[in-house]
């Protein structure tokens, strides 16, 4: 007798992959960025599907396939989840402490740098308040696009 295709194992693995690959998508939105709960939700759904699939494969081996590939897919999913957690909770947090960074109430260090049109721009000019407006500047230091 041909055994049933154990779809939930594959679906579970795909959800785990989606949980990992969707990080660059969800990180664009404030709601899903600060804590990657949307990714964890996908991993969670994947986990449940894998458990369902494995229960079928090992509980009713005569009805369902998947003892071998189900185990492989589950191990791969766990590895993907581990890699995701490592990146999000460890690697992305490897930043210098910046203990000497200027603090609230201090004068911002003055600078003059070229902008994208190679025009020299000074902080003193940036913070000038236009007529009737409070004025100021937001400095966004970023890693670069290389």
């Amino acid at each position: 007798m041909k055994r049933n295709w154990n779809w939930s194992l594959w679906a579970g693995f795909l959800f785990a992959l989606a949980g990992f690959l969707s990080y660059t998508f969800f990180v664009q939105f404030p709601l899903t960025r600060d804590f990657p709960w949307a990714n964890f939700l996908l991993f969670g759904i994947g986990g449940i599907l894998l458990i369902v699939g494995l229960t079928r494969a090992f509980g009713k081996p005569k009805l369902y396939r998947g003892k071998v590939f189900g185990t492989i897919l589950t191990i791969l999913s766990v590895l993907v989840f581990a890699l995701f957690s490592y990146i999000v909770f460890y690697e992305l947090k490897q930043l210098p402490a910046s203990a000497e960074a200027p603090r609230v109430g201090q004068k911002a260090p003055e600078f003059t740098l070229p902008d994208q049109n190679d025009k020299q721009v000074a902080l003193a000019d940036l913070i000038l308040s236009p007529a009737g407006k409070p004025g100021g500047a937001v400095l966004i230091f970023y890693r670069g696009f290389w």
Binding site: Y23, V27, R33, D34, P36, V88, L92, K93, L95, P96, S98, A101, P102, R103, V104, G105, Q106, K107, A108, E110, L123, A124, I127, L128, S129, P134, G135, G136, A137, V138, L139, I140, F141, Y142, R143, G144
Partner: peptide
Amino acid sequence: IARPAEFLIDSTGIIRWVNLTESIGVRA
């Protein structure tokens, strides 16, 4: 390179707010 950070500076050049993120993925 620079680590991600944001500074709000008022029109007199005084820093009014600083954000030193703990994660590269999380920005102001």
